[in-house]
Structures are given as structure tokens and as C-alpha cells.
């Protein structure tokens, strides 16, 4: 302690900053922060998409990948245009959209109701939750023959397949969302004597909405995946039936055109949910 020299401060004439007299060589402190904070970059999605397209074009155009394995982007586009022109795309699209909308709405509303009861009542949690957990991993495609036996080969079995696939993830999303609603808010509402129904509609449901929307994001994708499975059985029209038939007929250009439409549909639905998140979850 005793041999520590007192530090003399001197005012630097130009910058006016205090500078340590006889300071040793300066070393800048290396930057160690940053990262872990992904942002949305505006044109990157488009550029990525174009790059993938370009890669596809190059490998098929120069014959690096055979025509049999992967048709050229131009052929797929031509198949798409042909489907638009002869009206078959519209017919198939409408048939599928109906099944998707019905199946998703049914599965999601049942899922939300069951998820809410599981989230709110001990008896439901103990009885229904293990059941739902057991139902979730069942490959719905494997149950298709049973669906056909129970519900026939008409629209009902197709809608049911989609609804069944949507149901479990929505149940799990909903009760998870209900579990995550701040108990303090519920106690607060109770302390003001707010009726149970109002607590449900104004506290629990809006509080579970983030989880519901992310559940919707997953379940719409599952619905589209199951659409093809649902349309395996006795579907004359539909995007899934079209893709299946194109595969069976080895019309790979039409197959990929159908896949493009399906993934475009998935992308659009995900955009809609993203919009809903920004619109309804602005309070976050």
C-alpha cells in the first residue's frame, strides 16, 4: 500500500479529457457482446428463394441432375400454367380448401375446448391429458383404413382425418397456454369479484392467445400434410389427390407443380397467422 504512487491528473489541452500521466500503451477492449438477436432482413427471403431457384435451374439445365429425378423449373412452371388454364387447379384447390377449412376448424375448436377444460379442471387434466398424449403420436395415415370403415370414403372421413390431426396439437397448445396465464392476473380478477365467465373470456383466453396462435401455426401445417393422406382415399379432386395421381403417373412436373401450390398454401397460411400475431398480440 505504502509504495503506491499517487496518480497525477493533467488536463489534455486539445480534447479536454483527463489523461493519466505516463500512461502505458493503450489497448482497446475487445468487443465481446452482440449476436443472439436475430432480426428480419428485408430482401433476404426473396434472395434466398431466387438462389434456390437458380441452383435448381443450373443443375437441371446442365444435366447434372437427370430429368427423371428432377424436372426443370420451366417444365414445372409450364405444368402449373397448364393446370391454371384448363381449370383443374381451381377445381382441386377449392376441393382441398373446403376440406382443410372444415377439418381445421373442427379439430381446432374441439382441441381448444378440450385444452381449456384440461387447463382449468383437475379431473379433465387427469383423465383427458394422458389420452390426448397417447393420441398425438398416432400416425393418422395408419388409421386411414379405420376412418374409411367408420366414416366411409366420402368427405366425412377426409375432414375427420384432418380434424383428428389438428386436434392433439391444439389441445396441447391450449392447455399449455392456459397454464402460462399469469395466476396473479386471475387472483386479481377474483379479488375484484369478476365473474368466472368474464375471467375466462377476458383473462384466460387472451392470455392463452399467443400459445393458441403458435398452435395454429403448427396445426395448419399438419393439416396440409394430412390433406394428401386424407385425399388418398376416394378423392376425385383435391391438391393431395392431384399430387398423388401425378406421382403414380410419374408426371414429375405436375407432381412438383402440385407441391409448389401446397407449400405456397402453407406459406400463405403462416403469413396470415403472422399477421394475426402482430395484430392481436401487440400488447406483448
Amino acid at each position: 500500500m505504502a509504495d503506491l504512487k499517487p496518480v497525477t491528473l493533467r488536463v489534455a489541452p486539445i480534447l479536454g479529457e483527463p489523461v493519466l500521466a505516463a500512461a502505458p500503451a493503450r489497448q482497446s477492449v475487445p468487443f465481446r457482446g452482440g449476436g443472439f438477436a436475430p432480426r428480419r432482413l428485408r430482401f433476404v427471403p426473396l434472395v434466398t428463394f431466387l438462389l434456390v431457384l437458380a441452383l435448381w435451374w443450373v443443375v437441371t439445365h446442365y444435366g447434372w441432375v437427370s430429368d427423371l429425378s428432377l424436372p426443370k423449373p420451366g417444365e414445372v412452371f409450364a405444368a402449373l400454367v397448364a393446370m391454371v388454364k384448363d381449370g383443374s387447379l381451381a377445381v382441386n384447390f377449392m376441393a382441398s380448401i373446403r376440406r382443410l377449412a372444415l377439418g381445421w376448424a373442427l379439430g381446432a375448436s374441439f382441441g381448444v375446448v378440450i385444452g381449456l377444460t384440461i387447463g382449468l379442471f383437475s379431473l379433465a387434466r387427469s383423465s383427458a391429458l394422458p389420452l390426448v398424449s397417447a393420441l398425438f403420436p398416432i400416425p393418422k395415415i395408419a388409421l386411414l383404413p379405420l376412418f374409411v370403415l367408420w366414416l366411409g370414403i366420402g368427405e366425412v372421413s377426409k375432414v375427420a382425418t384432418i380434424a383428428f390431426g389438428v386436434f392433439s396439437p391444439m389441445v396441447i397448445a391450449t392447455f399449455g397456454g392456459v397454464d402460462n396465464v399469469d395466476r396473479g392476473l386471475i387472483r386479481m380478477a377474483q379479488s375484484f369479484g369478476v365473474p368466472r365467465w368474464t375471467i375466462l373470456t377476458r383473462i384466460i383466453l387472451p392470455g392463452a392467445l399467443p400459445a393458441l396462435l403458435s398452435g395454429a401455426r403448427i396445426s395448419t401445417s399438419i393439416a396440409i400434410i394430412l390433406l394428401t393422406a386424407a385425399e388418398m382415399i376416394g378423392a376425385q379432386h383435391g391438391l393431395g389427390a392431384m399430387v398423388l395421381a401425378a406421382g403414380n403417373l410419374m408426371q414429375t412436373d405436375q407432381l412438383l407443380a402440385g407441391v409448389v401450390v401446397l407449400s405456397g398454401l402453407g406459406f400463405t397460411l403462416s403469413q396470415i397467422i403472422g399477421w394475426a400475431e402482430r395484430r392481436f398480440l401487440h400488447w406483448r
Binding site: 399469469d182 396473479g184 392476473l185 387472483r187 386479481m188 377476458r202 383473462i203 387472451p206 392470455g207 392467445l209 400488447w283 406483448r284
Partner: peptide
């Protein structure tokens, strides 16, 4: 913790 409902 105030217990304000964040979406109201």
C-alpha cells in the same frame, strides 16, 4: 407486481 392485464 401491479397485476395489470397487459392486453387491456
Amino acid at each position: 407486481d401491479f397485476a395489470l392485464v397487459p392486453w387491456l
